[in-house]
């Protein structure tokens, strides 16, 4: 199996079946360290399923997923997160009764180990991790432009702020690979442009990004490479320019999408 230092994630002949339905059929791709990889395809193509397989929500029927050379198959979901893969959700799934700051702290806690005794007796570990967590959380909230809303309940934030808070929470787990599941869903073009810049900035901070997105313009503008799925199969793989000119992709996705967009 090919595992180079540059490849942070390697998906090899991944197949996932639900009963008779084949959601993912023999998919292979890899993500290089430090790149922004786009994962696109029509609705129901298996993009989110692929995400779920990587983050441990679904067990692959067959195939391998290697993260930094280590297999993720069979690992628990929280172990995968602690190991360096974080994600956001297509439908926002913040903790609504907790403040924005606490939501991000949950992410930061992934790398911490304070238990009930440390907390109860306020041992140095608790103090150290709490201070480090707060600092990281406030930095990330500032980075996402949410510093002022730190003490606001997540449920009370505007839609866009909630989307940004999800990214901040994922970043707080200090991942190497961050998976964004349609982060721009429901955004207007202006907001999408801002988000695009933000995703680039996330990458510039040293994160590798896997991006699911419907909006072709956003994907073309921000990604280094693109994988195209259709009906659970990979139909194209390459730079944005290559993918744009691929006849199979145009037939499967772009033609339809551009009619919609105009």
């Amino acid at each position: 199996m090919l595992v180079s230092d540059a490849r942070i994630l390697e998906v090899d002949q991944l197949t996932l079946r639900f009963g008779g339905l084949t959601a993912l059929d023999n998919i292979s791709f890899h993500i290089n360290e430090g790149e922004i990889l786009g994962l696109i395809g029509p609705n129901g193509a298996g993009k989110t399923t692929c995400f779920n397989a990587i983050t441990g929500v679904y067990k692959p029927t067959s195939g391998a997923i290697l993260f930094q050379g280590e297999s993720l198959v069979g690992k628990k979901r929280f172990e995968i997160t602690q190991g360096g893969i974080a994600r956001t959700f297509q439908n926002i799934r913040l903790f609504p009764t907790m403040t924005a700051l606490e939501n991000v702290l949950i992410g930061a806690d992934a790398q911490h180990s304070t238990g009930i005794l440390s907390a109860l007796f306020r041992l140095p570990k608790h103090r150290r991790e709490e201070a480090a967590g707060h600092q990281l959380a406030m930095e990330l909230l500032g980075f996402m432009g949410l510093a002022k809303q730190a003490d606001e309940l997540a449920a009370n934030l505007s839609y866009g702020d909630q989307r940004r808070l999800e990214i901040a929470r994922a970043m707080a787990t200090q991942p190497k690979l961050i998976c964004l599941d349609e982060p721009a869903a429901g955004f207007n073009p202006q907001e999408k442009r801002v988000l695009m810049d933000l995703i680039r900035k996330v990458r510039d901070q040293g994160f590798t990004v896997l991006l699911i997105e419907h909006d072709m313009r956003l994907v073309m503008g921000v990604t280094d490479r693109i994988i195209v799925l259709e009906f659970g199969k990979k139909i194209a793989d390459g730079t944005p320019a290559e993918v744009r000119d691929n006849p199979a992709v145009i037939a499967a996705y772009l033609g339809v999408e551009e009619e919609d967009a105009s």
């Binding site: 628990k76 979901r77 929280f78 997160t81 959700f89 903790f95 949950i106 806690d109 992934a110 787990t173």
Partner: peptide, 10 residues
Amino acid sequence: DAAELMGVPT
């Protein structure tokens, strides 16, 4: 589920 995916051993 979200907690588990955020690294909380629920």
